[in-house]
């Protein structure tokens, strides 16, 4: 499939990025193949699994469905951008502390979505977390520990730092 390219500019994890992309390229492909940002994972490629979850202007989306051209002028945050100068982000640390990570493939998306949920609802209940993570599939099926980790972040008892 031939398609024209267009130049886009956006902020990626706080850094200005400018590049040319084919207009039908998806954001996930741009991140992984053009920018070498492989933290965001490709699994289903059709919006079903959430492994490719990123933030765009603060909201989470499936980057495998999002056209890269639509990033123009917007702010993206990927799992690479979650880390703080002090170390892992509290949500990342909680996932580690609670043994929520098995093979880890679903985790970047899972953590991005969990962080988004807590940011938008500091009193997130376990059931709300479960519903909010419906679009994130884990093939290792570690859902219980994922929910434990999210709950711990909500209750701020995951680690000393948060």
């Amino acid at each position: 499939m031939m398609s024209v390219e267009t130049e886009i500019r956006f902020k990626l994890n706080g850094r200005e990025v400018c590049l040319k992309v084919p207009v039908t390229m998806k954001t996930l492909t741009m991140l992984r193949d053009k920018l070498g940002m492989t933290g965001t994972k490709y699994a289903c490629g059709e919006g079903e699994c959430g492994a490719c979850t990123i933030r765009i202007d603060g909201k989470t989306v499936n980057s495998c469905l999002m056209y890269a051209v639509d990033c123009d002028g917007r702010e993206l945050v990927t799992i690479e951008g979650l880390r703080t100068p002090e170390g892992l982000h509290p949500m990342q640390q909680a996932f580690v502390d609670h043994g929520a990570i098995q093979c880890g493939f679903c985790m970047p998306g899972m953590i991005m979505q969990a962080d988004y949920l807590v940011e938008n609802n500091p009193k997130l209940t376990r059931e709300e977390a479960q519903r909010g993570l419906e679009g994130n599939l884990c093939r290792c099926t570690g859902y219980t520990k994922v929910l434990d980790a999210v709950e711990a972040v909500v209750e701020k008892k995951c680690c000393g730092r948060c």
Partner: peptide
């Protein structure tokens, strides 16, 4: 017309739908 792309992306990837000369992002 491209809006959220959640139908357009999978449909064009699978070949069920073909693009036309212009791609118009309405967002």
């Amino acid at each position: 017309v491209l809006c959220g792309g959640t139908d357009l992306a999978p449909q064009t990837e699978s070949g069920a739908r073909l693009y036309t000369a212009k791609l118009l992002n309405i967002r």
